[in-house]
Amino acid sequence: MSEADDSTGDADGSGVQLDMISGERMDQLASMEKIRLILDSVHDGNIVILEEGLDPEEESKLIEVTMTEISPDEFTGIEIETYPGSSKSSGGFFDRLMGRETETKLTVIGPANRLETLHKDETLISALVTRT
């Protein structure tokens, strides 16, 4: 993956930029830096794919910050999907009790007006990305 270029996006409307961010890169960031990185990219119209996702506390802050940035006719919020989507397969309550952080969940985040989830179940996420 090349360095995410968040300055240009797809200004000419010719495509959709995907930013795939490795777990290693995210590990070096503080929670708010992660959220900023994601939302800045999403504001530019990009789709962000996180190799390892966010922890629950960060997800909660992501929702909170997203809400404060919604603005009529400009930004309607985010669409987010994680895979695997259920906590029942691994990393459940007992793992957390034991302090085991077993979950690494591929996460896709995009602007709500561009990314639409078509279908989702335990084993498959199908999403539609539009140019705007």
Binding site: D55, E57, I63, I80, E81, S86, S87, K120, D121
Partner: peptide, 15 residues
Amino acid sequence: FTQVNTMLVGIIESQ
């Protein structure tokens, strides 16, 4: 089985 439900229940469990 929606993202919001799974995320929210995960957040509640983590607290």
